[in-house]
């Protein structure tokens, strides 16, 4: 009896507040615009039966998504931004993780804390910090002007460049931590062995260190890619009006256009896009766990 309560309380909570809401999104994405206008009652009438339910389904909203090229462009540009910023984060994060794993042992706990600290600081504040730096009169332009690198201020804020900077900055800890965890476990004598056997330092790095940290690299990349794909705060604060990202489109469909069925359809498609990376990520984590055991 007690076991039953223990299982059923969190189970029911998640059913009611995770699964049911999601079913509602699915249902609304398949319903008529007129039907779904607020106040919409997402009711499933068993009395009319399954057939009536199915015949009510309407793929109009999904057809709409394919017809208006705004959505296509938003999905493609989200994928593009997520992909390249993941790559940039990897390029920035790997040397840091590598440096941390090679640092003297008594420093590592402190370095680790320094990486985690920004993660606990408000995401919104970390994005906001860049608004003051990247603006036309901002800190970066002032510094570059003063150094004489440029003659007139660069426009960075409200462009895709600013979005890339924002993503790399806010998600860097997610990349560093798994790579560091993988590198720290590595046995240094393997590198020495490779060097003894005639590898140059660079090829020892490519042939030994990188493959051994592969699980960390993969985990870090997914931890950056997955949330970036649906990102809303960064494109809306740092991006410009021409920065198209699907999280922003969904937000605007919902709050500005009040078009719930289309917003729900956008959400469903975004989730479909995410299924592949999520499954691959899960598989990577499982493989890693099995390797540890």
């Amino acid at each position: 009896m007690r076991r039953f309560a223990l299982i059923s309380i969190p189970y029911l909570w998640l059913l009611a507040l995770f699964l049911v809401p999601f079913a509602i999104v699915l249902k609304i994405s398949l319903s008529d615009v007129a039907l779904a206008r607020p106040p919409y009652m997402p009711q499933f009438d068993w009395a009319t039966g399954l057939w009536a339910f199915l015949s009510e389904l309407d793929f109009e909203n999904f057809v709409w998504l394919t017809q208006d090229d705004l959505y296509w462009k938003a999905y493609l540009s989200s994928l593009q931004i997520a992909f390249f910023s993941t790559l940039l984060t990897l390029l920035a994060g790997y040397p840091i993780a590598y440096g941390m794993a090679r640092a003297p042992e008594e420093w590592r706990a402190t370095l680790m804390m320094l990486v985690i600290l920004p993660f606990w600081t408000s995401f919104l504040i970390r994005v906001y910090a860049w608004m003051g730096i990247l603006s036309n009169e901002g800190f970066l332009n002032q510094a570059l002007l003063w150094l004489g690198v440029i003659n007139e201020p660069l426009t960075i804020l409200n462009t895709n460049t600013a979005v890339y900077i924002g993503v790399v900055y806010t998600y860097l800890p997610f990349m560093i931590l798994p790579i560091y965890a993988a590198l720290e476990r590595m046995d240094d004598s393997l590198i020495e062995a490779a060097e003894d056997l005639g590898c140059s330092r660079l090829s020892a790095f490519w042939l030994v260190t990188v493959p051994l940290s592969k699980s960390g690299i993969v985990a870090g990349c997914f931890l950056v890619f997955i949330p970036t794909l649906g990102e809303f705060v960064i494109p809306s604060l740092l991006g410009g009006s021409d920065t198209l990202m699907i999280g922003k489109v969904l937000w605007e469909e919902f709050f500005s256009n009040r078009d719930w069925p289309v917003a729900s359809a956008v959400a469903v498609v975004l989730l479909l896009l995410l299924i592949v990376p999520i499954v691959l990520f899960q598989r990577n984590q499982q493989k890693q766990q099995e390797a540890e055991q």
Binding site: L17, V20, P21, I24, P227, G230, L250, W260, L271, L274
Partner: peptide
């Protein structure tokens, strides 16, 4: 791993429902 916009949207639709 669920994007926040989706979690938010789905919960809002539930609460309204």
């Amino acid at each position: 791993v669920m994007p926040e916009v989706i979690t938010g949207l789905s919960l809002l639709l539930l609460f309204i429902g």
